[in-house]
């Protein structure tokens, strides 16, 4: 009996000790983690837009985020957007499935807290009332320069050959692709894993919205001059040559990665679907914003 008591005491003590160690680490690392994640996202975003350390984004540019929700009220579905307002604060706009404006509820949340999903859900829920349920869908990042839109950044995920591939797309205001970055994937190294290589990602660069809608995957190998242009960083080709060659291949389809057609098709179709849905949604949102004269900073 005495044995059991000492065992229990010692186990409890060691658990408490372990708890203290882990808790302390968590406190120390959680802020750094959040900060690094945010910084990483920012870096990817700026990278996609072509800004680097030596070529920083101009002071006049700004980043705005719009969060999309699916709202259920009395068994009727509608779409909601949490958008910032031109003069401080946020508003939550609900739009019915046919694209007609339903309501705009002011939401009380600060700029710092809006990036956290939990906080957002809490305040939007408070603004809409108890009888509605919310589901966060995705966010859109809108980059402006002097109040003019210069780019959209769209995160998205879709099934690849093995598991989900998550990526971020940059579009210009006419929905042509500015760039594409693969954020996470678990494709096979050397085969589907090549989707993270420049020569694959750069194939999408500059494709117009019209070209993207019809984009297909072809199974022929990439022509060598095009490959060199796509890997300009590595091959050291001059910018003029790169532009000329890229121009030549602008209307061409995507060349499949060798031995990984499924991954290639997944990325191509994923990008296609993301852009198409976004183009449709942003036009509706813009319409509603204009009709209701809601002033937004983008």
């Amino acid at each position: 009996m005495k044995d059991i008591i000492t065992i229990i005491i010692r186990l409890t003590l060691s658990c408490i000790l372990a708890g203290i160690v882990m808790g302390t680490t968590l406190i120390f690392t959680s802020n750094a983690k959040k900060h690094n994640e945010h910084a990483n996202e920012q870096k990817t975003m700026f990278g996609l837009l072509g800004y680097t350390k030596d070529n920083p984004a101009p002071e006049s540019s700004a980043i705005h985020e719009a969060y999309r929700y699916v709202v259920t009220k009395d068994e009727a579905l509608s779409v909601g957007y949490l958008v910032p307002l031109a003069d401080k604060g946020f508003t939550f706009i609900t739009i019915d499935l046919d694209g007609n404006f339903l309501a705009a509820n002011p939401v009380d949340i600060s700029q710092a807290l809006v990036i956290e999903e939990k906080e957002r859900n809490k305040v939007i829920g408070a603004a809409l009332g108890d009888d509605t349920s919310l589901r966060y869908a995705d966010k859109t990042i809108i980059v402006t320069d002097n109040g003019q839109r210069i780019a959209y950044l769209l995160p998205g995920a879709f099934p690849g050959f093995k598991t989900f591939i998550s990526m971020m797309l940059a579009l210009d205001p006419s929905f042509a692709i500015l760039g594409l970055e693969i954020m996470e994937h678990e494709e096979d190294p050397g085969l589907g894993g090549e989707i993270e290589q420049d020569y694959f990602k750069n194939q999408f660069k500059g494709k117009s919205f019209a070209a993207l809608k019809k984009l297909e995957v072809v199974k022929t190998p990439i022509p060598t001059d095009f490959l060199k242009a796509l890997e300009a960083k590595k091959s050291g080709m001059s910018e003029a040559d790169v532009a000329a060659i890229k121009e030549q291949y602008m209307d061409k389809d995507i060349y499949a990665l060798t031995g990984a057609t499924i991954s290639t098709v997944a990325v191509t179709n994923g990008a296609k679907a993301i852009v198409k849905k976004f183009a449709y949604r942003i036009s509706i949102l813009d319409n509603v914003l204009k009709e209701q004269q809601i002033a937004v900073p983008f």
Binding site: R10, L11, S14, A18, V21, M22, T25, T29, N36, E37
Partner: peptide, 26 residues
């Protein structure tokens, strides 16, 4: 309770390195 204690100690330090790596070397 030798083995459970070992496991606890290892699990604690794995958690620590896991958190640190996730935070500083994502």
């Amino acid at each position: 309770i030798r083995i459970p204690t070992y496991t606890l100690a290892i699990a604690t330090w794995v958690t620590v390195i896991d958190l640190v790596l996730a935070a500083y070397m994502p």
